[in-house]
Design a protein around this nucleic acid. Sequence first.
DNA 1: CGGGGCAAGTTCTCTGAAGACGCTAACCCC
DNA 2: GGGGTTAGCGTCTTCAGAGAACTTGCCCCG
Lengths: 250, 250
Amino acid sequence: MTESPVHHELPIYRRIADRLRGRILSGDLRDGDRLPGENALMAEYGVARATARQALAVLINEGLAVPRRGSGVYVRLFRPIRRHGSRRLSREQWAEGRAIWDADTHGRAYTVDQVEIRREPADEEVARVLGTGEVWVRRRRYLVDGRPVQLAGSHFPAELVEGTAVVLPDTGPGGVYARLGDLGHSPAHFTEELRARMPHPREAELLGLPAGTPVIAIARTAYTAEGRPVEHNEMILDAASYVLQYDFDA
Amino acid sequence: MTESPVHHELPIYRRIADRLRGRILSGDLRDGDRLPGENALMAEYGVARATARQALAVLINEGLAVPRRGSGVYVRLFRPIRRHGSRRLSREQWAEGRAIWDADTHGRAYTVDQVEIRREPADEEVARVLGTGEVWVRRRRYLVDGRPVQLAGSHFPAELVEGTAVVLPDTGPGGVYARLGDLGHSPAHFTEELRARMPHPREAELLGLPAGTPVIAIARTAYTAEGRPVEHNEMILDAASYVLQYDFDA
DNA sequence: CGGGGCAAGTTCTCTGAAGACGCTAACCCC
DNA sequence: GGGGTTAGCGTCTTCAGAGAACTTGCCCCG
């Protein structure tokens, strides 16, 4: 073959992504600003749509931007940096883990203040994760000594739990997952993503937080052994800490 | 609500991804196994190459698989190895996890900007955790493309590592823990505690964060099998999200 | 003036094709 | 048998085109 001195240049989509990232990090493009769209990138760099898309996908993947269908791609400054941890957990341990977590909300017992169950259209993020248009949502509010410490919303694909007399009632530790199992969608695996952010005013009000207090937002998605997502849980933890425990092999 | 005219089926690439994920999570495809390649998926599902690629990209993105150019896409499970007959994390996996986290800081390599090693009195918190008055501290700063993404400080009980020519130099993945092992204080497990907080001005400056950006602070303490704390690591992740993956026991 | 509907713009999904590049194993020559 | 070469396979990048799905703003109508 022609032994062309392979320059090893970065692929086009990567160079475009780098330039866009530069504009974001330099402050040229700010939080909420709209990035150049696919058409604009095609024209500006003379590339195909797939290439332009790929460049945007890089930033979306990095969490620097979020796409809004039919509208554009927008700068999202609270950029996620990911870290993967691993931990294997038995269902009992999971229940136990929840106990630990509860115990850590200031070392006191929690009570459930309010559970709200209703069917509603999935928002953008939930639809993306669960791959469905409508969900059943359980919203909860936990209290400790009269002070709320957690807000949580659990989303289930509507077509999976439809018709259940009471949609996944609470049945103690591991109860919801057990109920999903009864329906033939037993969760086998889940992921959690944690993020630090400032609460929205409404959230701060519900949690009774003083202004300027950041929270930990956790998004958990549970999958069946077949890989089908069956639950997506989003919650916010007030100043509480989140404790993990790992063990090395002996 | 309005009539829902569109049935809203999942896109093809997503359905393929779901099936593949299922095969992984169910154990049909195991750690290190090769997934069906682009050509195989094209033939099996009768789709174009781009669609097959997109399906694989989902799994790669989720961290369930890793591509190897010129070879194939392979299952990468965070699930602890069965061959060890244990539900625990191997040091290799831990090191691997760290590598992934590094790679995930925007998909590019990190470099160590600065490593500072010195002996100093333990502050209140560190003294409480490590149970000692003086510690050796390693402070580090990671950079990605000239932008810092992490601040970390590792504390070791002075009486344990005293006299080491170079106090626990960096020796690649898992290096520090291996070095502790050499000294007879091999870590057997650790805990991590996560908290959302506002960075101090100095931290924000070092991390190049805009004002008002919360961070995730992580405190990790490693213990020997005897329960003796041998390391306490505190780090801050810039606007970070923290991704965890769990597996239930079968 | 308010509301409904339309049209333009945008992302999302998918098809089909082609060359570049990396890895591996079979092959050939010594 | 050992070592280097090569062919084949697989992923990676890019092109061109097209319809579906969704958002938004504008226009028209009542």
